[in-house]
Design a protein around this nucleic acid. Structure first.
Lengths: 338, 338
DNA sequence: ATGAAAGCGCTAACAA
DNA sequence: TTGTTAGCGCTTTCAT
């Protein structure tokens, strides 16, 4: 039957129970002979240490909590996969919760994670209320927000340089001499959505251009509706910056299939993220790359640093990403500086 | 500081520690007055039961292990999201591991899951060796394989009716009077890949057609290579059945962008899964639907039944899915029966 | 309905 | 290096 205890192994190996424990504890010492005897007995019995019991004693569960919202935007499954792999490689397990962007829901879920004594929490693209942040701090559980910032700066976050990213798109559109520019923004309830828009607007402002802006809410349907709205105006845009790739695909679909508009000839479209699909020929989406691997590495490094040394202060990390030129835009007419 | 124990709550509430335990134990009894006192004290102290300790005693961790392979095929993130939501709703948490399709890797990962005393395991599209199956059985841990079958029938599995699905595609192609038919199959190391191919070949056989078959290995690059291979022949196919949507998109990209071939005019393409992207106008992929929600429900029901009653026998559940007609195929020239 | 007491399987001092 | 001992925070008899 399944449950073999260290005591049974000890009896079979003819040593004390603590000897068994030591053999299976990474930083412990036992004579080669003891190790040999114990390992043999353990193998014969099919013994494996009970991680729950170990976690209870040590206070270290070796589990990281991951809170993630919707998985229909390809960026997140990929982030999840990378985070999972990297964490596994470092000996951590992942307890996953899905949560909507509703703060109350997130709070419930984070609370549950804390009940499981997770050593740290990563939230991927969900917002945290500041009292929730406080509770985690009180409980001594480090948090890193992935792809979302937080105003207070009381919690670590890893994002791409969203403001600069938005500005890069603006600069490019100016070079291309687009005149009628629109922005279907990321959800304005998210820092990423706001920052990209802010950078974009600031960049266009230098050329004296004020874009039309509609909140796309990170959804396909809302983005398509926004597209139709934009194109119905007397002077439809000749370039649209979309708050992320996921929406940009919907925008391109709407433009081409519903409205019969050509991309990039009639309208240029630029996204944000550079998910793999952006490179597929069906879209060829020009977009600002979020360097996923570097973001994941930064997230994990930050989290583990905070786990190992609770006193390190939270920091907001921004990782720079390039504008990747593809076929959803034309080449600039002027030279592209730098 | 974070750690508040039931003992501290007991002292503050002026009751015994066991009283506190009972108040927080679902099936226990305490007087309204005690409940009131304890809840108030717990709130003031910010007490929450330690799930690790509880799990250690009861042997019920309320955790389900989930082993998943690659997340780049949209079908899996969606499945993960649905499984996660449904399991959360039933009070279970999910410990996620990513594993390659390498049996040794899967074995390691499942073993680790067992170390955490998970109450059950779901494997999504990864294969299990039979001795691993045996070990889980010995440990009394139920397993359900999602979207993969197992020959022995010693473990439960939930799949779509893959053989019938393949046959439906064959019937449709025959109705459309396609003559030169090819199949870029799912990985032949997977039951799903094999069953779909078997059904397809069997269906075509009734019309005396033998398709050209290449293993697409579930990858974009391999699928594109297979496409090029097929189209280079003296008599290129006029219809291709692709083992899943993920590859089918690559096939369509290759056909249209690389080879300048029209879909469906020159070649019809049919996929398998019906991921959301299949309905996007850029592809409009005709495909066999795998009813995700029903598959998820069946998976969870089966798993929980086995957890609640260890003696229920494993069963292989197959869920029927329709062929969804879109623009990657022409309408049949003959009437479509039924 | 309640409290006292005995562990769950393990780690971590402490002696030896 | 080893065994002995004392818990980790909780659930669960067993009396009361």
């Amino acid at each position: 039957m399944g449950v073999v205890t260290s005591l049974q192994v000890a009896e079979r190996a003819g040593v004390s129970q603590s000897a068994v424990s030591r053999v299976f504890t990474p930083g412990a010492s036992a004579s080669a002979k003891t190790v040999e005897k114990v390992k043999r007995a353990a193998d014969e019995l099919g013994y494996r240490p009970n991680m729950m019991a170990r976690a209870m004693i040590t206070g270290k569960s070796r589990i990281i909590g991951l809170v993630v919202a919707y998985l229909d935007n390809q960026f997140y499954p990929l982030a999840l996969e990378r985070l999972s792999n990297a964490l596994q490689a470092k000996g951590y397990r992942i307890l996953v919760f899905t949560a909507s962007n509703d703060k109350a829901h997130v709070a419930r879920v984070v609370q549950e994670l804390m009940d499981y004594q997770v050593e740290g929490i990563i939230t991927a693209s969900v917002g945290m209320s500041s009292d929730l942040t406080q509770r985690c701090e009180d409980a001594g559980i480090p948090i890193v927000m992935f792809n979302r910032g937080q105003d207070g700066g009381r919690v670590s976050s890893v994002t791409s340089a969203n403001f600069e990213g938005g500005r890069k798109v603006a600069d490019f559109m100016i070079e291309c001499e687009h005149k009628h520019i629109a922005h279907i923004s990321g959800w304005q309830g998210s820092s990423t959505g706001r920052d990209r828009q802010l950078g974009f607007v600031a960049g266009l402002d230098e050329a004296g251009i004020v874009p039309r802006v509609i909140d796309g809410m990170y959804g396909r349907i809302t983005a398509a509706a926004a597209t139709r709205d934009l194109m119905d105006r007397r002077t439809p845009p000749d370039a649209i910056f979309v708050g992320n790739d996921h929406m940009a695909f919907a925008v391109m679909d709407c433009l081409r299939a519903d409205l019969g508009v050509s991309v990039p000839d009639d309208v240029a479209v630029i996204g944000y993220d550079d998910v793999p699909m952006a490179a597929w020929p069906a879209y060829g989406l020009t977009t600002v790359r979020q360097p996923l691997n570097r973001m994941v590495d930064a997230t994990i490094d930050t989290l583990i640093a905070q786990i190992d040394n609770k006193s390190v202060t939270p920091k907001a990390i921004e990782i720079d990403g390039d504008l990747i030129l593809r076929t959803s835009t034309r080449r600039p007419t002027k030279g592209h500086d730098q």
